[in-house]
């Protein structure tokens, strides 16, 4: 056990406004080799365009975090960007397996991938703890589940009031969070709608953040008084990328391109076909 360290979070002022940048500039500024990177989206608002820019800029040794890694993470893993993946459910939602992810875990291609596997409840609580500036999350979980045996970051803690044994996992504090949202205003405030997942928590837990948006508007206008909004001073960079969540959903803008999700199953099964597809559609496209 290391000696207790003060974990108090240094307050930030509201003077550091989000920069509105090109996607290329945002990724160059925020994402470095070896970073822990959380690109979130609970199968909705997945930051595909930003993830593709990370691949184009050939970031290496990333420690990826995501509750529901899907095609975008299959692409990052298959292109050799990641050394590690922390996750709770990895699949092609509604279709099947992630073949690049499986190839990395089962065969070490293109290189070995370390995994840290949790449950959804653990990761959701860990993001919440990260946003709250806590060192760990405490919850009732993992009872009778074998992940406890294979993941050294799942531990237990005793409630000092009731004596109940509870599960605890380290807070998630990514170097950078990358998410997609519907709108930013010109001041760099960002509004999320629909299935909002853990995006707000991921951004607030991270040291830096990139948010791609469908559009930048002069003003959000009439809105629900409890709309999910991240103030500009909590965000590092914003890039306007219409369709930046394609092929996933962006509620109010576009539906899931389900044909692509189905097509990916075939593309990703074969290493060469995968590499060829990535060359054509990601490395040379933008």
């Amino acid at each position: 056990m290391s000696e207790p360290v003060s974990q108090f979070v240094k307050p930030v002022t509201n003077s550091g406004r989000a920069k509105i940048l090109s996607l290329h500039e945002a990724v160059a500024l925020c994402v470095h080799d070896g970073d822990t990177v959380a690109m979130e989206g609970f199968t909705h608002l997945i930051p595909y365009a930003a993830g593709h820019e990370v691949i184009r800029q050939q970031r290496k040794h990333l420690q990826l975090i995501r509750m529901t890694p899907d095609i975008l993470y299959d692409q990052l893993i298959g292109m050799g960007c990641a050394d590690k993946l922390m996750f709770s459910w990895g699949g092609n939602p509604g279709v099947g397996s992630l073949h690049r992810f499986r190839d990395a875990v089962e065969n070490g291609w293109p290189h070995a991938l370390e995994i840290e596997e949790h449950s959804h409840a653990a990761m959701a609580n860990a993001y919440d703890a990260g946003a709250a500036g806590l060192p760990c999350a405490v919850f009732r979980g993992y009872v009778g589940a074998e992940l406890i045996r294979v993941n050294k970051n799942i531990k237990s803690i005793q409630c000092p009031f009731t004596g109940e044994t509870l599960a605890t996992v380290p807070a998630i504090r990514p170097d950078v969070a990358i998410v997609h949202a519907q709108r930013a205003d010109r001041q760099g405030n960002v509004m999320f709608e629909g299935i909002v997942g853990v995006q707000k928590e991921a951004v607030l837990a991270a040291k830096r953040s990139i948010i791609t948006v469908e559009e930048v508007v002069a003003d959000f206008g009439a809105r629900n008084r409890n709309a999910v909004i991240l103030p500009s001073w909590t965000v590092t960079a914003i890039a306007c990328v219409p369709g930046g969540a394609h092929p996933s959903y962006a509620q109010g803008y576009s539906r899931r391109d389900n044909n692509f999700y189905i097509a990916w199953d075939k593309i990703a099964r074969d290493r060469n076909q995968f590499l060829s597809w990535m060359q054509t559609h990601v490395m040379q496209g933008r």
Partner: peptide, 22 residues
């Protein structure tokens, strides 16, 4: 089609974040 389908959100009484859900 998936857990993030807008059809769920459009027809729901309300939609909460994932940490709150769990």
């Amino acid at each position: 089609l998936s857990i993030g389908d807008g059809e769920l959100c459009d027809t729901a009484l309300t939609t909460v974040g994932v940490p709150e859900m769990f």
